[in-house]
Design a protein around this nucleic acid. Structure first.
Lengths: 201, 201
DNA sequence: TAAATTATCACGCATATAGGGGTATTACGT
DNA sequence: ACGTAATACCCCTATATGCGTGATAATTTA
């Protein structure tokens, strides 16, 4: 299924997909609302989803489609490679992310990749996604502080932390105070938020 | 640079890389310690790193190399596609992840992919990584509760949450109590931990 | 090698915030 | 009409946080 508001692009994608031996377009829509309404009829295995759409956008649409039809794989197709949008789309349930500049080959190989259980992405998206995992090697925290921050992020209390590390509760407290001071926060939850933001753990 | 303890594989990789027009092996080592010691001499642009190694393992080694030489890209090469190992390697700073079964073409195209700023991965790894972003569509929480959990994860206090949502502090508290009961936790940090684990936000 | 810094450890008191248990009203969608 | 979600309040206790003080071990730097 194709969801794309630009008629030219929509037709071009349809032609490319239908020209392949393996894939067939069941239907193409100009907005998510129509696509969602037709979901139970069309039963698409793969959806090529535009991000910018009139009405419901492609990210919200992805959520709804994944909710109604969890086994349908969704590939986002967009002009932008803005990192926030990418991550939002992935959180929403997209399994691939390619750009509109994708040519014949790239589009079809993305479909191939999906059916064989992969996750097609452009080079830049792949790097963006991988970079998102990298832990900051320039953390201001000491090893011990990082260790304690890790335990905080696991939901441990002062007492649990002190027991786990065989130190007194007061010592745990001192470490946590130092962590707060370095991260300029003043609660566990804030510390966790900052730790995730700056990839300290 | 190649770091791989099995001499046969090491030689085979060296041959493949050197056979290409674009790439040259500066050195190949059987363990991380030697590789790290030679880092400033060899100045590799790319390291092909085995995971299982005698002495320091490939993940620790990746951390050290990225720390000493941040611009060196590291591609993990392994027989296993165990999800925990993959994520640990990515956190440590790896920019690619391929399997030892990779043939001539796959190995060289991984190198190509790295130099053009991408992140080469096998299909399964790519899917694993993407799936890691997907938010659980079967959350037991209501929309409002999810919204509040989101604010908790941003480090907000009861008061801040109530102000942000234009509700009373007591209402925020009630929602949070309900969240705790549904997630079977009893603190903000634990709630955040569970939320991340079960991808509720 | 000596000096300095950093990491680790420890205690006490006052206050703020969070958590546990209960109860209740209103609004909305099926 | 009913269940669920969202709103709100009360009382009490537990935990965490802020601020101060100080000491020893380990590591780095001069």
């Amino acid at each position: 299924m194709i969801v794309e508001d630009d008629q030219e692009i929509r037709n071009s994608f349809s032609l490319i997909v239908n020209s392949s031996q393996k894939f067939t377009v069941v239907n193409a829509y100009g907005n998510c609302e129509e696509a969602i309404a037709a979901l139970h009829r069309d039963k698409p295995e793969i959806v090529l989803m535009d991000v910018e759409l009139p009405g419901m956008n492609g990210i919200q649409g992805t959520k709804v489609i994944k909710d109604k039809s969890p086994h349908t794989d969704i590939i986002m197709v967009t002009v932008y490679e803005d990192s926030e949008l990418v991550f939002e789309a992935l959180k929403a349930g997209a399994s691939g992310y390619i750009t509109k500049s994708a040519n014949y080959m790239e589009l079809l190989s993305a479909l191939e990749e999906i059916v064989k259980g992969g996750a097609p992405m452009s080079s830049r998206i792949a790097r963006m996604v991988i970079d998102n995992f990298h832990v900051n090697p320039n953390s201001p925290l000491t090893k011990r502080e990082t260790e304690i921050l890790q335990l905080i992020s696991e939901g441990k209390t002062y007492t649990q932390i002190s027991e786990e590390l065989f130190i007194s509760k007061e010592t745990a407290k001192t470490h946590i105070k130092n962590i707060y001071s370095k991260l300029q926060v003043n609660s566990k939850s804030e510390a966790i938020a900052k730790a995730n933001l700056e990839k300290l753990i």
